[in-house]
Design a binder for these strands. Structure first.
Length: 492
RNA sequence: GGUCGGUUGACCGAGUGGCUAGGUAGCGGUCUGCAAAACCGUGUACGGCGGUUCGACUCCGCCACCGACCUCCA
């Protein structure tokens, strides 16, 4: 497997050549959502970032196993004893069975991900389906002395771990500083140290989601699921782990600690973290309440939205920034992205109509080379797009007759657009969807206006012709006393 | 308070020790009956102050401002 892909490894804070453990196979684990409310714009960032990675590795010929989990149990609102499970809390609020909450929002997530044209992961494991594996991992940690049980709950012993390994390596934290800086939360009495974290929590009687275990009837801690499921599906050591930067600490740090303590091996070779989407300069997050859901975005229904933005506009907007940069939401930026995306796709259709010349006056191969270089440089999608826009100008110039492409270069350019725009960036033409309907509505309203003008001049011949011809193509006009309605004839 | 990151033209957003990023918007032009599209051209851009250097937006130091993480968050 020959590739020159370099990725920025959060662990070393450097760009490193990507060398999988067992080429051509490679494994990716990405932290998916906790499904307790609607998917928002922030969730689109990791989904798209790691979709590009998945697509590019596939394109390069790797056999990729892409695992993205669903957290459907155990994600507490905080680490105190009375911390509520996010899903349980929502279930009470909406008077639903917890698994109804999970199903409801998982469906929304899947639908939104499909709209954004992200590929389905190879495996999408759910935490609640891996209770046994998590319990086994807890047993391993207890046996090895890195965990302790108190009153039916099991906690990870961070101090013990830090004696042998390095807790805080990923996030650049020093345990001594954590000790002095960790905020004291209520009800931490059970834990030996404030920074110890739960592996298993004993359930209170009113808790609904709970399972029997050697320690108590209870439920697993949040950090544990990723260790258990990545072990199961990707092995003790795998290539890439992805997720949002906000998960770096404590989630990923704890994951490293659990996995390393259990098997005496660092579990992940390359850690990749996408940056946040901000709104008004602040992180968009459910907990901050400043989020815009993807459904709102696609429908234009939110006080901050001046219009609807299509899924591909959102995807393009996100790809216009590098995944490790903060990107700020604004209508202006989305609108600029929408125009740019349309320009790109329009050139794509122009490309299909180009006629070859006997010689070329442009260099297609140079662009192809630069496109690969951009992706190889830590998935630099904005630079890739800038090269594709160079190709757009090339296409339009050929279309205008000021540049020429021979048959071979024309075929090469078509292939290049197909590879980078469709296969790797995952962009697709959206005409034929709601945009088409808007167009139809605009056209019909225009024709109705012209007909109204004709009727005002008592030109009923024209007026009737318009109505009849529209009827033939399936548009039914209805003259009402306060105006004209129209509808599409129902096809039988 | 600790750790880390950012501050680029009207807006978004890349990047580099000396060479046009790109998109959007603006302006001028070509084309067009007019427009649109397309193409060509165009704008004192790199937070402030010092330093290193033949040369810094790019490296170093200090300052200011913004943000992320340190509690759940993609």
């Amino acid at each position: 497997m020959q590739s020159n892909l370099h990725i920025f490894n959060s662990l070393t804070r450097k760009k490193e050549p990507f060398k999988p453990l067992q080429p051509p196979f490679t494994g990716i684990y990405v932290c998916g959502p906790t499904v307790y409310s609607d998917t928002h714009l922030g969730h689109a960032r990791p989904a798209i970032t790691f979709d590009i990675l998945f697509r590019y590795l596939n394109h390069l010929g790797y056999k990729v196993r892409f695992v993205r989990n669903i957290t459907d149990v155990g994600h507490l609102e905080n680490d105190a004893d009375e911390g509520d499970d996010k899903i349980l809390k929502k279930a009470r609020l909406e008077h639903l069975e917890p698994m109804e909450v999970v199903q409801k929002y998982l469906d929304v997530y899947h639908r939104n991900m499909d709209q954004l044209n992200t590929l389905h992961p190879s495996i999408e494991p759910r935490a609640s389906g891996h209770i046994i594996e998590q319990q086994e991992l807890i047993s391993e940690l207890l046996e090895r002395g890195f965990a302790y049980e108190v009153n039916g709950s099991v906690y990870f012993d961070v101090l013990k771990y830090n004696e042998k390994y390095d807790y805080g390596k990923l996030s650049g934290r020093v345990l001594e500083e954590l000790q002095t800086n960790t905020r004291e939360l209520e009800g931490q009495g059970e834990k030996r140290n404030a920074f110890d974290f739960a592996l298993w929590k004993k359930a209170s009687p009113e808790h609904i989601m709970k399972w029997p275990s050697p320690w108590s009837v209870g439920f697993p801690g949040w950090h544990l699921e990723c260790s258990a499921m990545s072990f199961k599906y990707l092995g003790e050591v795998f290539d890439i782990h992805g997720g949002g930067m906000d998960l770096q600490f404590p989630h990923h740090e704890c994951e490293i600690a659990q996995s390393t303590a259990a098997r005496d091996k660092a579990p992940v070779r390359y850690w990749m973290h996408n940056n946040m989407i901000t709104i008004g300069g602040q992180k968009m997050a459910r907990s901050l309440g400043n989020f815009i859901t993807l459904d709102q975005l696609f429908a234009g229904k939110h006080p901050l939205l001046q219009q609807a933005y299509s899924p591909m506009t959102v995807r393009f907007f996100i790809l216009q920034a590098h995944y490790r940069s903060v990107v700020d939401f604004s209508n202006e930026a989305l609108q600029a992205g929408e125009k740019g995306f349309q320009k790109l796709m329009k050139a794509f259709s122009t490309l299909e109509k180009l006629k070859p010349s006997d010689k070329s006056t442009v260099d297609v191969e140079a662009i192809r080379k630069r496109c690969y270089e951009a992706l190889d440089d830590d998935l630099n999608s904005p630079v890739l797009l800038s090269h594709l826009f160079d190709a757009v100008r090339m296409i339009n110039s050929v279309s205008d007759g000021t540049e020429k492409l021979d048959e071979k270069d024309l075929a090469s350019l078509k292939e290049l657009f197909s590879i980078f725009i469709i296969d790797i960036l995952g962009l697709k033409d959206e005409s034929g969807t709601s945009q088409d309907e808007q167009l139809t509505a605009g056209l019909v309203n225009l024709i109705i206006q012209l007909r109204k003008d004709a009727r005002a001049k008592k030109d009923f011949a024209t007026s009737d012709k318009i109505r009849n011809e529209l009827s033939k193509i399936g548009i039914i006009l209805k003259d009402r006393k306060d105006g004209v309605d129209w509808e599409k004839a129902s096809s039988t």
